[in-house]
Design a protein around this nucleic acid. Structure first.
Length: 107
DNA sequence: GGTATGACGTCGA
DNA sequence: CTCGACGCCATAC
């Protein structure tokens, strides 16, 4: 996945948290993004930090549409998240999301 | 200024 | 394919 030198980091002055939340809000139903994807979309490389932000303020956005790069889910939320994703018709394989099909390209 | 932390990622066993 | 160790990097203290 290419990374434009000047992607769409909105305002680099704005806290990463706001950019991350905005990005997650835009994920269409039935699709998902990896933490690392969100990170790039907002112009950072800290996938871990994305998760941290979600833990803090993710309650107001479709957090269930953000999964790990390999399609697995974070332990604490995996049950609820899995249920919601299924309900939206996201491609699931076993206990993981089928990234090759459900991954949002940012269209 | 440095240290600890985590809804992550990747590679090797 | 699964599991563990190590690396990353923005935040909070």
């Amino acid at each position: 996945m290419p990374k434009p030198p000047t992607p769409a980091p909105d305002d680099a002055t704005r806290p990463l948290s706001e950019r991350v939340l905005s990005c997650v809000e835009q994920i269409p139903p039935g699709k998902v993004l990896a933490y690392s994807d969100v990170a790039e979309f907002v112009g950072t490389k800290a996938a871990r930090n994305v998760g941290r932000i979600m833990a803090a303020e993710g309650g107001s956005v479709p957090w269930h549409r953000v999964v790990r790069a390999d399609g697995s889910l974070a332990p604490h939320i995996r049950a609820e998240q899995l249920a919601r994703l299924r309900a939206e018709g996201v491609a699931i394989r076993g206990e993981r999301v089928d990234m090759s099909r459900a991954r949002w390209d940012g269209r």
